[in-house]
């Protein structure tokens, strides 16, 4: 104890501020070995996880609050009394009018997003090698797949809003097609609301991602990152893009499969 209280003259006290202090808590360290920008992107994504987590939690609560259809699958009918079976709601495919193709279109959308994630990580890899041409190529592919996903979602939404061939007969005998925020032909009103909010919020993220990627492509083409000497911006936008893919993995399971 006595030894620890005796002050030893340190480099800092003898040479004043010439030599910076370099202890763990003296600042200037990177405990996470990640740059400021990448770390902040991680924290932003964590906060975004809570937003999407809130949506999916609300979905879980509301879905379990409603009744479950218990009859045989072939006799399933749309009703506000029970939660709809996703295979019966999402069974259309562009160009195959009237054909029952359950979940085929959403499978395509999932594949498009997985592909876009792969091309994104290829762009990041090209950035590590400072290969400008490759970064441009893979960014363009990612933008293409991202736009394809957005167009698919636009089609999915218009089909959901427009409604199925067969209307649902309401309690007062009126026929109702499609969906809006107040009511829908597939099930309880909250089913439509959750569809619009969850897939809409995810789609907004994809849209912002595509805008950021277009900006990245322009900056790469102008040589901004080449002058900087590193392509870290591509990595940061890449983190965001993979997160959007990750959210879709969860939306896909909890909204379309379970």
């Amino acid at each position: 104890m006595a030894q620890s209280t005796t002050l030893q003259p340190t480099a800092a006290t003898t040479d004043f501020a010439d030599a910076p202090r370099s202890g763990t808590w003296d600042g200037g360290n990177e405990p996470f070995r990640a740059s400021y920008g990448k770390l902040m992107m991680w924290f932003f994504l964590l906060s975004d996880t809570f937003t999407f987590g809130a949506f999916l939690t609300a979905y879980g609560l509301i879905r379990h609050k409603h009744g479950v259809y218990t009859g045989p699958a072939k006799d399933f009918f749309f009703s506000t009394a029970h939660w709809p079976v996703p295979e019966k709601v999402f069974n259309a495919f562009p160009g195959f009018h009237g054909v029952d193709l359950p979940l085929a279109f959403v499978a395509l959308m999932t594949m498009i997003l997985i592909f876009s994630s792969v091309t994104m990580v290829l762009a990041v890899e090209a950035g590590h090698r400072l290969d400008k041409a490759d970064v441009q190529k893979w960014l363009l592919w990612t933008i293409l797949f991202g736009s394809m996903f957005l167009s698919s979602q636009a089609w999915e939404w218009s089909h959901f809003i427009g409604g199925h061939e067969e209307p649902t007969i309401m309690a007062d005998g009126t026929r109702f097609f499609g969906a809006n925020l107040a009511m829908n032909q597939y099930g309880p009103p909250l089913f439509g609301d959750l569809f619009f909010f969850i897939t809409g919020f995810h789609g907004t993220h994809v849209f912002s991602g595509v805008i950021l990627l277009i900006w990245c492509f322009i900056a790469t083409t102008n040589g901004t990152f080449e002058k900087r000497g590193h392509y870290e911006m591509i990595e940061k936008i890449g983190l965001y893009w993979h997160f959007v893919d990750l959210v879709w993995v969860f939306v896909f399971t909890f909204f379309y499969l379970v």
Partner: peptide
């Protein structure tokens, strides 16, 4: 491939979210 402290910084809050989902699904029923 990041350092352990960063991995845990991301995973622990997310694990709490899993608990929230389980709790509210039960509550919903």
């Amino acid at each position: 491939h990041e350092v352990k402290s960063l991995i845990w910084t991301i995973l622990i809050p997310t694990a709490l979210l899993v608990w929230l989902v389980v709790a509210l699904v039960t509550e919903g029923s």
